[in-house]
Design a protein around this nucleic acid. Structure first.
Lengths: 212, 212
DNA sequence: ACTTGACCAGATTTCGAACTTGGTCATACG
DNA sequence: CGTATGACCAAGTTCGAAATCTGGTCAAGT
């Protein structure tokens, strides 16, 4: 049954590509099927509706970014620190045109899926971030004079501020430099010095994996 | 000729009110004139076009926010500190539905004026912020391990991140609490301890006044 | 000298016809 | 017998012309 999975992957690849190139509105199921070299009906053997297909495209991009984060956490447990995490996540998002377009709220690219976020649960995202910050707080890796809900809110505001700033043309330096700037900002705003061990990194990775 | 100024104020009041209530698209010059108790042609004695009128409404809101900042700076020179400034400015914007709608990019409210920002020069805004941060840097009130352009970029990202976060429903606590949270974030991210004198506050006020 | 609203051109909205496309399913194929 | 397909249909979208509205003017009124 791997042929079926292969075909699914192929369809998602094609759909993602067309989505980036032409935007949500302009991509039809026929286009996708044609570009994948299969009949339209076949697409519906995998997803019940057009929206489900494109949601799947989005979900895969999210899984990809999370996989990147998990990899980074395994490679270097220090990525579990809030400021390192911020920089890695920032880059993991900007690396993916689909996610970038979603975060920026590119209506052209995502149509009505923006905001509804295509079945991807924004509430869950917030909860995971809150748990993550909780974990860091318990280990003393973040400032303790702010309650974790406030800390989480502030962190997310800062993070999204830097993401949104990407859409501004007059950005300073390179993307990597901006990631470092975000890191420096988050570090002095929220982090406390310390060196996480692999166990903590695993815990954070597990939390993230709960986002799939 | 104060009657003329009074009438101008009246028109701007009415226009601002209708703008908040009905949004850019739905407000006609006839509506505004009617609500102001004058003829349509009279409106054109004050502004050459519809766009100029609404730009004037926006410009007045900006001047109001800046006036608030100048007042706050005079009342307490410590507002010149980046984190105090951030909190005051945050509140000055959110206090004004027109500015809030503009910052949030409320297309419903502002129509095509969003982005073009109605003659209000976003580039100038950036320059003023950069000058302000320069002044703080020269006095040692902000961290010195970051160049001022980077510092400015980071500060603006953080600030806008908090503003954008306002549109999220699940905000923590009250608006004032969020202003304090922003302040705490900016303080530990960028500020260095110190007490500005009235001269510095005046200098900053002068910079801001250059934004009119 | 100042104000006004009738007026007009151009923009916007409306509305139905023409076309497009998501989703189904009878048929073809292996 | 199970899987894949594309012709088909209804729902949705686009298009265009007619109807309506509104920014801006200016001759007439105060």
């Amino acid at each position: 049954m791997t042929a079926r999975t292969d075909r699914e992957t192929k369809i998602l690849d094609v759909a993602a590509d067309m989505l980036v190139r032409h935007g949500y509105r302009r991509v039809t199921i026929d286009d996708v099927a044609g570009a994948a070299g299969i009949g339209k009906g076949t697409v519906y053997l995998h997803w019940k509706t057009r929206e489900e297909l494109f949601s799947a495209v989005f979900a895969r991009a999210v899984r990809g970014a999370i996989a990147d984060m998990v990899t980074a956490l395994r490679a270097d447990p220090a990525v579990a620190l809030l400021h390192r995490f911020a920089a890695e996540f920032f880059l993991a998002i900007l690396r993916r045109p689909l996610l970038y377009g979603m975060v920026i709220g590119d209506v052209q690219m995502w149509g009505k899926l923006v905001g509804s976020e295509a079945g991807y649960d924004g509430g869950r995202h917030n909860m995971v971030m809150a748990s993550y910050v909780d974990v860091l707080a318990a280990r003393g890796f973040v400032r303790t004079d702010l309650a974790t809900p406030e800390l989480t809110y502030a962190f997310q505001s800062v993070f999204e501020g830097f993401i949104y700033a990407e859409r501004t043309v007059g950005s300073t330096g390179t993307r990597d430099e901006r990631a470092r700037l975000l890191s420096a900002t988050v570090e002095s705003a929220f982090s406390r010095p310390g060196t996480p061990d692999a166990a903590l990194a695993d815990e954070v990775a597990a939390l993230l994996s709960g986002l799939v």
